[in-house]
Amino acid sequence: MPTPSDELVKRSADMLVAGYYLSRCGTKSSTGQADGPPLAIGVSTWNAAYDFFYDAMGDGRSPEQFRNSLKNTRDTFDHLFSNGRTGWVNQDGKRPSIRNNFARTHEEWKNRTDQELQAFVLRLQSAISDDDPVGQPTSLAVTEGGQKVYASTRRERSQKARSAAIAIHGLECMGCGFGFEKAYGPLGKDFIEVHHVVPLSEAGRVQTDPLNDLIVLCANCHRMVHRNRSICLSLDELRQHLKDVASPL
């Protein structure tokens, strides 16, 4: 069950959809059992899958708290799907029915295709995914319809700058050359992640030059430049790591 630390920050609607996607669209082994995260997010372990959404949905949690909360979210949805996982069970070993926001998320997406769900979640993650840790939740704003609404702080990002970066740099990863449309066909069309060379958390409020301040990266390379959260690799450093692996001494 969720731990007290997970409940300090309420799960957002974005996080619920991400958990629903992870539960419903994970890869399966040849026997049909659950095998790993969805292929489209480019990671092979569940912890890496949770980390994939951290920048966009962390909402002030520590990385460990976020992993636990998103895992709990995924587990809550598990019994809805034939994904090889049991999901949450109560003390009697029975699967409880989902309720409240979890039920609303399922109702919203149950009749839509996996492709629609995946495209929505990837756009959701990519639109905010960046280098800037999400700020701490600040205060309770208002109560509406029996649901508490929380205010949190996020760095403001320019969609115009993002679009300009893609127009300048294209849709192939500047680190490894990966192209989402080449790999996934129409599902991957027009998809790439945009990375600030200097993280917004360090730069603050600045004028962004899409040519020099932004680069485009696939999900894997974007995770790797932030693999050590205290150090952001440059594009040259990332390429050197790839070169070292491709041409070992």
Score class of each variant (00 low, 15 high):
Q147N: 07
K148S: 11
K148N: 08
V149D: 04
Y150W: 14
A151W: 02
T153V: 08
T153A: 02
T153K: 04
T153G: 00
R154A: 08
R154V: 15
R154W: 09
R155I: 05
R155Y: 14
E156M: 11
E156N: 11
R157P: 01
S158E: 11
Q159C: 03
Q159W: 12
Q159S: 13
Q159I: 15
K160M: 09
K160S: 12
A161S: 11
R162C: 02
R162T: 15
R162N: 11
R162A: 08
S163G: 03
S163T: 13
S163C: 01
A164R: 12
I166M: 10
I166Y: 00
A167D: 15
A167S: 15
A167L: 06
I168E: 05
I168H: 02
I168K: 02
H169W: 10
H169V: 11
G170Q: 04
L171W: 05
L171M: 04
L171D: 02
E172R: 13
C173E: 06
M174G: 03
C176W: 07
C176K: 01
G177V: 01
G177K: 06
G177Q: 06
F178V: 00
G179D: 14
G179A: 12
F180W: 11
F180S: 05
F180P: 01
E181I: 01
K182Y: 06
K182E: 14
A183W: 13
Y184F: 13
G185I: 00
L187W: 11
L187A: 13
G188N: 10
K189G: 03
K189W: 06
K189H: 13
D190V: 03
D190P: 00
E193I: 07
V194Y: 06
V194L: 03
V197N: 01
V198K: 10
V198G: 01
P199D: 02
P199L: 05
L200K: 07
E202W: 07
E202T: 10
A203I: 08
G204T: 10
R205N: 11
R205H: 13
R205A: 13
V206F: 02
Q207A: 12
D209C: 09
P210Y: 08
P210T: 11
L211K: 08
L211G: 00
L211A: 13
N212S: 10
N212K: 08
L214V: 08
L214F: 06
V216K: 01
V216G: 00
V216R: 00
L217K: 04
L217S: 08
C218M: 07
A219Q: 02
A219M: 05
A219H: 03
N220R: 14
H222T: 05
H222S: 06
H222I: 10
R223E: 07
R223I: 12
R223N: 11
R223D: 09
R223H: 14
M224S: 09
M224R: 14
M224N: 10
M224P: 01
V225N: 05
H226V: 07
R227P: 00
R227H: 13
N228K: 12
S230Y: 14
S230R: 15
S230K: 15
I231L: 09
C232E: 08
L235M: 05
L235H: 03
L235A: 01
D236K: 09
D236E: 15
D236S: 13
D236F: 09
L238C: 09
L238H: 12
L238D: 07
Q240D: 12
